[in-house]
């Protein structure tokens, strides 16, 4: 039986097999690693989310007829109560939460923190809490500057007596503190 008992050209087959397997695995390896490093595809999915957050904060920070900005009014009027799972919205910021809920689509959830510096430390206070944000959530922020003199200007717009944001500077200057209103957004 020449077909089976022939001793010619046996190594060529095994080499061919090995070479083919090597090539297939090389192509598989390349294709798998290319699929992992998809350039910015995640960014595009989330850019609309970032626009929602950014636009909402900018809109609330626009000047109003009766106050310099809604956002500033909310930050100054914060009563110092932090949000937690059993108390998702600080009572003085119900209006802020209602505005955001109205603006955001139904499938978008958000948390809001107030971040400020005092005595060399950065302090974060959660004020609206709607859950634990997943890994692909987006963060946007808007800076709000508070001044000492607001307490004299109008009763509508003064720093709440229980507000835990401290006067950061020496008594000589008008600056009260700079607060970062930070909003974390994700798709439910």
């Amino acid at each position: 039986m020449k077909l089976i008992h022939s001793t010619n050209a046996q190594m060529n087959t095994i080499e061919g097999l090995a070479a083919a397997l090597l090539m297939i695995f090389a192509i598989l390896f390349v294709s798998k690693s290319a699929a992992i490093t998809m350039p910015q595809s995640g960014e595009f999915l989330n850019s609309q989310l970032q626009l929602y957050g950014h636009d909402a904060l900018i809109m609330l920070d626009q000047e109003d007829y009766n106050s310099s900005s809604q956002l500033k009014k909310y930050v100054a009027g914060w009563d110092g109560i932090e949000a937690e799972p059993f108390n998702p919205v600080s009572p003085s910021l119900e209006g802020f939460d209602q505005s955001l809920r109205k603006i955001m689509p139904d499938n978008v959830l958000y948390n809001v923190d107030l971040v400020y510096a005092y005595d060399g430390c950065v302090i974060e206070k959660p004020v609206i809490y709607h859950g634990i944000p997943p890994d692909n959530s987006i963060r946007v922020f808007q800076l709000v500057t508070l001044y000492d003199e607001y307490s004299n200007i109008s009763s509508d717009f003064k720093i709440h007596e229980n507000n835990t944001i401290p006067d950061t500077d020496h008594s000589g200057s008008l600056l009260y503190n700079i607060v970062q209103v930070r909003c974390t957004l994700w798709y439910a």
Partner: peptide, 19 residues
Amino acid sequence: IFLISFLLVVQLVPNLFIP
């Protein structure tokens, strides 16, 4: 072996460039 690997490559190549 050639045909199997050729088919595999044909299937893979269009997917390679999706990203």
